[in-house]
Amino acid sequence: MTTVATDTPMTDPRKAGRYVYAAGVFLLCAWVIVPLYFLLINTLSSPEAVNAFPKSFVPEFDLGSLTFFAGFAGMLTALKNSILVAVLTMILSIAVGAPAGYALSRFDFRGKEVFRMLILLTRAFPLPLLALPLAVMFIRTGLDDTIFGLALVHTTLAMPFAVLITFSLFSGIPLELEEAAWTLGCTRLTAFTKVVLPLILPGITASAIFAFVISWNEVFAAAVLTIENRTLTAFLLTNLDTSPLHLKFAGGFILVVPALIFIFAVRKYLFAMWGIANR
Protein backbone atom coordinates (compact mmCIF):
# COMPACT_ATOMS: atom_id res chain seq x y z
CA MET A 1 0.00 0.00 0.00
CA THR A 2 2.63 2.54 1.05
CA THR A 3 4.85 1.95 -1.96
CA VAL A 4 1.96 2.45 -4.33
CA ALA A 5 0.97 5.62 -2.51
CA THR A 6 4.45 7.14 -2.78
CA ASP A 7 4.98 6.12 -6.38
CA THR A 8 1.84 7.41 -7.97
CA PRO A 9 1.44 11.04 -6.84
CA MET A 10 4.08 12.12 -9.35
CA THR A 11 2.18 10.77 -12.33
CA ASP A 12 -1.41 10.84 -11.21
CA PRO A 13 -2.24 14.56 -11.40
CA ARG A 14 -0.68 14.71 -14.85
CA LYS A 15 -2.66 11.73 -16.02
CA ALA A 16 -5.83 13.22 -14.59
CA GLY A 17 -5.01 16.48 -16.33
CA ARG A 18 -4.62 14.69 -19.60
CA TYR A 19 -8.00 13.01 -19.19
CA VAL A 20 -9.64 16.35 -18.45
CA TYR A 21 -7.92 17.79 -21.53
CA ALA A 22 -9.04 14.91 -23.78
CA ALA A 23 -12.56 15.08 -22.38
CA GLY A 24 -12.62 18.84 -23.00
CA VAL A 25 -11.56 18.43 -26.62
CA PHE A 26 -14.12 15.66 -27.07
CA LEU A 27 -16.93 17.72 -25.50
CA LEU A 28 -16.16 20.73 -27.66
CA CYS A 29 -16.19 18.56 -30.77
CA ALA A 30 -19.52 17.08 -29.70
CA TRP A 31 -20.84 20.61 -29.09
CA VAL A 32 -20.23 21.38 -32.75
CA ILE A 33 -21.27 18.05 -34.24
CA VAL A 34 -24.35 17.02 -32.24
CA PRO A 35 -26.61 19.88 -33.43
CA LEU A 36 -25.53 19.08 -36.99
CA TYR A 37 -26.40 15.46 -36.38
CA PHE A 38 -29.87 16.46 -35.18
CA LEU A 39 -30.38 18.39 -38.39
CA LEU A 40 -29.25 15.33 -40.35
CA ILE A 41 -31.80 13.16 -38.52
CA ASN A 42 -34.57 15.56 -39.35
CA THR A 43 -33.53 15.83 -42.97
CA LEU A 44 -33.32 12.08 -43.48
CA SER A 45 -36.70 11.41 -41.90
CA SER A 46 -40.14 11.44 -43.42
CA PRO A 47 -42.19 14.62 -42.91
CA GLU A 48 -44.41 12.69 -40.50
CA ALA A 49 -41.45 11.67 -38.35
CA VAL A 50 -40.14 15.22 -38.32
CA ASN A 51 -43.39 16.50 -36.88
CA ALA A 52 -43.89 13.54 -34.54
CA PHE A 53 -43.05 13.28 -30.87
CA PRO A 54 -40.89 12.05 -29.26
CA LYS A 55 -38.05 12.22 -31.75
CA SER A 56 -35.96 9.27 -32.62
CA PHE A 57 -32.23 9.84 -32.15
CA VAL A 58 -31.34 7.85 -35.27
CA PRO A 59 -32.35 8.86 -38.78
CA GLU A 60 -34.75 6.53 -40.60
CA PHE A 61 -33.11 7.29 -43.94
CA ASP A 62 -36.31 8.38 -45.58
CA LEU A 63 -35.95 10.86 -48.41
CA GLY A 64 -39.49 12.15 -47.93
CA SER A 65 -38.46 15.52 -46.55
CA LEU A 66 -35.89 16.09 -49.27
CA THR A 67 -38.32 15.14 -52.05
CA PHE A 68 -40.89 17.43 -50.50
CA PHE A 69 -38.24 20.17 -50.49
CA ALA A 70 -37.37 19.51 -54.13
CA GLY A 71 -41.03 19.57 -55.09
CA PHE A 72 -41.90 22.72 -53.18
CA ALA A 73 -42.76 25.52 -55.57
CA GLY A 74 -39.84 27.84 -56.21
CA MET A 75 -37.38 25.96 -54.04
CA LEU A 76 -35.23 24.53 -56.79
CA THR A 77 -35.16 27.88 -58.57
CA ALA A 78 -34.04 29.47 -55.33
CA LEU A 79 -31.28 26.87 -55.01
CA LYS A 80 -30.18 27.56 -58.57
CA ASN A 81 -30.23 31.31 -57.89
CA SER A 82 -28.12 30.85 -54.77
CA ILE A 83 -25.51 28.92 -56.69
CA LEU A 84 -25.48 31.44 -59.54
CA VAL A 85 -25.13 34.42 -57.23
CA ALA A 86 -22.37 32.73 -55.25
CA VAL A 87 -20.42 31.75 -58.37
CA LEU A 88 -20.74 35.28 -59.77
CA THR A 89 -19.64 36.73 -56.44
CA MET A 90 -16.68 34.40 -56.39
CA ILE A 91 -15.53 35.43 -59.87
CA LEU A 92 -16.20 39.14 -59.37
CA SER A 93 -14.54 39.44 -56.00
CA ILE A 94 -11.37 37.70 -57.17
CA ALA A 95 -11.27 39.53 -60.49
CA VAL A 96 -11.72 42.89 -58.79
CA GLY A 97 -9.96 42.20 -55.50
CA ALA A 98 -6.84 40.31 -56.60
CA PRO A 99 -5.30 43.18 -58.62
CA ALA A 100 -5.61 45.40 -55.56
CA GLY A 101 -4.06 42.69 -53.39
CA TYR A 102 -1.19 42.51 -55.86
CA ALA A 103 -0.75 46.29 -55.84
CA LEU A 104 -0.68 46.35 -52.04
CA SER A 105 1.96 43.63 -51.84
CA ARG A 106 4.24 44.82 -54.63
CA PHE A 107 4.16 48.60 -54.80
CA ASP A 108 4.74 51.51 -52.51
CA PHE A 109 2.47 54.23 -53.72
CA ARG A 110 1.03 57.45 -52.41
CA GLY A 111 -2.30 56.79 -50.75
CA LYS A 112 -1.53 53.14 -50.03
CA GLU A 113 -2.29 53.52 -46.34
CA VAL A 114 -5.52 55.38 -47.03
CA PHE A 115 -6.57 52.63 -49.38
CA ARG A 116 -5.77 49.95 -46.82
CA MET A 117 -7.75 51.84 -44.21
CA LEU A 118 -10.73 52.07 -46.55
CA ILE A 119 -10.61 48.32 -47.08
CA LEU A 120 -10.35 47.63 -43.35
CA LEU A 121 -13.13 50.09 -42.69
CA THR A 122 -15.55 48.26 -44.95
CA ARG A 123 -14.80 45.12 -42.98
CA ALA A 124 -15.81 46.95 -39.81
CA PHE A 125 -19.16 48.04 -41.26
CA PRO A 126 -22.56 46.38 -41.03
CA LEU A 127 -22.58 46.10 -44.79
CA PRO A 128 -25.93 44.36 -45.30
CA LEU A 129 -27.55 47.59 -44.13
CA LEU A 130 -26.41 49.25 -47.31
CA ALA A 131 -28.73 46.96 -49.22
CA LEU A 132 -31.60 49.29 -48.31
CA PRO A 133 -30.60 52.30 -50.44
CA LEU A 134 -29.18 49.97 -53.08
CA ALA A 135 -32.66 48.60 -53.58
CA VAL A 136 -33.72 52.06 -54.73
CA MET A 137 -30.67 52.52 -56.89
CA PHE A 138 -31.16 49.11 -58.47
CA ILE A 139 -34.75 49.87 -59.38
CA ARG A 140 -33.54 52.94 -61.20
CA THR A 141 -30.85 51.04 -63.10
CA GLY A 142 -32.92 47.93 -63.77
CA LEU A 143 -30.71 45.78 -61.60
CA ASP A 144 -33.45 45.18 -59.05
CA ASP A 145 -34.42 41.59 -58.46
CA THR A 146 -31.60 40.27 -60.66
CA ILE A 147 -28.95 37.70 -59.96
CA PHE A 148 -26.27 40.11 -61.13
CA GLY A 149 -27.45 42.96 -58.91
CA LEU A 150 -27.35 40.76 -55.82
CA ALA A 151 -23.96 39.38 -56.83
CA LEU A 152 -22.64 42.95 -56.96
CA VAL A 153 -23.73 43.55 -53.37
CA HIS A 154 -22.31 40.24 -52.23
CA THR A 155 -19.07 41.11 -53.99
CA THR A 156 -18.89 44.25 -51.87
CA LEU A 157 -19.25 42.01 -48.82
CA ALA A 158 -16.57 39.59 -49.98
CA MET A 159 -14.23 42.22 -51.39
CA PRO A 160 -12.35 43.25 -48.23
CA PHE A 161 -11.59 39.60 -47.59
CA ALA A 162 -10.55 39.00 -51.19
CA VAL A 163 -8.19 41.98 -51.13
CA LEU A 164 -6.63 41.15 -47.78
CA ILE A 165 -6.31 37.44 -48.50
CA THR A 166 -4.75 37.92 -51.94
CA PHE A 167 -2.53 40.63 -50.44
CA SER A 168 -1.17 38.09 -47.98
CA LEU A 169 -0.86 35.44 -50.68
CA PHE A 170 1.09 37.70 -53.03
CA SER A 171 3.30 38.82 -50.17
CA GLY A 172 4.24 35.18 -49.71
CA ILE A 173 5.74 35.01 -53.21
CA PRO A 174 9.25 36.54 -53.18
CA LEU A 175 9.60 39.51 -55.52
CA GLU A 176 12.92 37.98 -56.56
CA LEU A 177 11.06 35.23 -58.46
CA GLU A 178 9.28 37.82 -60.56
CA GLU A 179 12.47 39.78 -61.12
CA ALA A 180 14.22 36.62 -62.23
CA ALA A 181 11.45 36.08 -64.76
CA TRP A 182 11.86 39.65 -66.03
CA THR A 183 15.57 39.16 -66.60
CA LEU A 184 14.79 35.89 -68.40
CA GLY A 185 12.68 37.53 -71.06
CA CYS A 186 9.29 38.05 -69.41
CA THR A 187 7.20 41.19 -69.40
CA ARG A 188 5.35 42.12 -66.23
CA LEU A 189 2.32 40.27 -67.55
CA THR A 190 4.04 37.09 -68.68
CA ALA A 191 6.06 36.95 -65.46
CA PHE A 192 2.76 37.12 -63.63
CA THR A 193 1.07 34.41 -65.65
CA LYS A 194 4.08 32.08 -65.86
CA VAL A 195 5.49 32.44 -62.35
CA VAL A 196 3.17 34.15 -59.87
CA LEU A 197 -0.13 32.68 -60.99
CA PRO A 198 0.83 28.99 -60.87
CA LEU A 199 2.29 29.49 -57.38
CA ILE A 200 -0.69 31.37 -56.06
CA LEU A 201 -3.50 29.37 -57.64
CA PRO A 202 -4.31 27.12 -54.67
CA GLY A 203 -4.52 30.16 -52.40
CA ILE A 204 -6.67 32.03 -54.90
CA THR A 205 -9.00 29.06 -55.06
CA ALA A 206 -9.28 29.09 -51.29
CA SER A 207 -10.17 32.76 -51.18
CA ALA A 208 -12.62 32.30 -54.05
CA ILE A 209 -14.33 29.57 -52.06
CA PHE A 210 -14.41 31.91 -49.10
CA ALA A 211 -16.23 34.46 -51.26
CA PHE A 212 -18.63 31.74 -52.39
CA VAL A 213 -19.49 30.89 -48.79
CA ILE A 214 -20.01 34.55 -47.86
CA SER A 215 -22.50 34.95 -50.69
CA TRP A 216 -24.13 31.57 -50.15
CA ASN A 217 -24.86 32.39 -46.52
CA GLU A 218 -25.91 36.00 -46.88
CA VAL A 219 -29.53 36.52 -45.82
CA PHE A 220 -30.37 40.15 -45.30
CA ALA A 221 -29.32 41.77 -48.57
CA ALA A 222 -30.67 38.79 -50.48
CA ALA A 223 -34.06 39.18 -48.83
CA VAL A 224 -34.07 42.94 -49.42
CA LEU A 225 -32.95 42.92 -53.03
CA THR A 226 -34.80 39.97 -54.53
CA ILE A 227 -38.51 39.34 -54.89
CA GLU A 228 -39.06 36.97 -57.79
CA ASN A 229 -35.52 35.66 -58.03
CA ARG A 230 -35.13 34.67 -54.39
CA THR A 231 -31.96 32.93 -53.30
CA LEU A 232 -32.29 29.92 -51.03
CA THR A 233 -31.56 31.91 -47.88
CA ALA A 234 -33.98 34.65 -48.85
CA PHE A 235 -36.64 32.10 -49.77
CA LEU A 236 -36.31 30.23 -46.50
CA LEU A 237 -36.29 33.43 -44.47
CA THR A 238 -39.36 34.96 -46.04
CA ASN A 239 -41.26 31.68 -45.73
CA LEU A 240 -40.14 30.92 -42.17
CA ASP A 241 -43.48 31.52 -40.52
CA THR A 242 -45.52 29.73 -43.18
CA SER A 243 -43.42 26.73 -44.14
CA PRO A 244 -43.70 23.38 -42.35
CA LEU A 245 -40.89 22.13 -40.16
CA HIS A 246 -39.64 19.46 -42.51
CA LEU A 247 -39.24 22.05 -45.26
CA LYS A 248 -37.20 24.30 -42.96
CA PHE A 249 -34.95 21.45 -41.91
CA ALA A 250 -34.38 20.14 -45.43
CA GLY A 251 -33.59 23.71 -46.53
CA GLY A 252 -31.24 24.19 -43.60
CA PHE A 253 -29.50 20.96 -44.49
CA ILE A 254 -29.03 22.02 -48.11
CA LEU A 255 -27.55 25.29 -46.79
CA VAL A 256 -25.11 23.47 -44.54
CA VAL A 257 -23.73 20.89 -46.97
CA PRO A 258 -21.60 23.22 -49.12
CA ALA A 259 -20.25 24.80 -45.95
CA LEU A 260 -18.97 21.44 -44.76
CA ILE A 261 -17.25 20.77 -48.08
CA PHE A 262 -15.84 24.25 -48.47
CA ILE A 263 -14.41 24.56 -45.03
CA PHE A 264 -12.74 21.22 -45.60
CA ALA A 265 -11.33 22.43 -48.92
CA VAL A 266 -9.87 25.66 -47.53
CA ARG A 267 -8.87 24.42 -44.06
CA LYS A 268 -5.15 24.71 -44.85
CA TYR A 269 -5.49 28.37 -45.79
CA LEU A 270 -7.93 29.55 -43.12
CA PHE A 271 -5.26 30.24 -40.55
CA ALA A 272 -2.56 31.49 -42.87
CA MET A 273 -5.01 34.00 -44.32
CA TRP A 274 -5.85 35.48 -40.96
CA GLY A 275 -2.29 35.31 -39.69
CA ILE A 276 -1.15 37.85 -42.23
CA ALA A 277 -4.35 39.84 -42.49
CA ASN A 278 -3.98 40.71 -38.80
CA ARG A 279 -0.66 42.48 -39.08
Partner: peptide, 11 residues
Protein backbone atom coordinates in the same frame (compact mmCIF):
# COMPACT_ATOMS: atom_id res chain seq x y z
CA UNK B 1 -14.30 23.29 -34.68
CA UNK B 2 -14.27 25.55 -37.72
CA UNK B 3 -17.24 23.90 -39.47
CA UNK B 4 -19.71 26.52 -38.15
CA UNK B 5 -17.62 29.19 -39.90
CA UNK B 6 -19.23 28.13 -43.16
CA UNK B 7 -22.73 27.85 -41.79
CA UNK B 8 -25.07 30.77 -42.32
CA UNK B 9 -26.91 32.36 -39.43
CA UNK B 10 -30.17 31.22 -40.99
CA UNK B 11 -29.05 27.58 -41.11
Amino acid sequence: WTIPLGISDLA
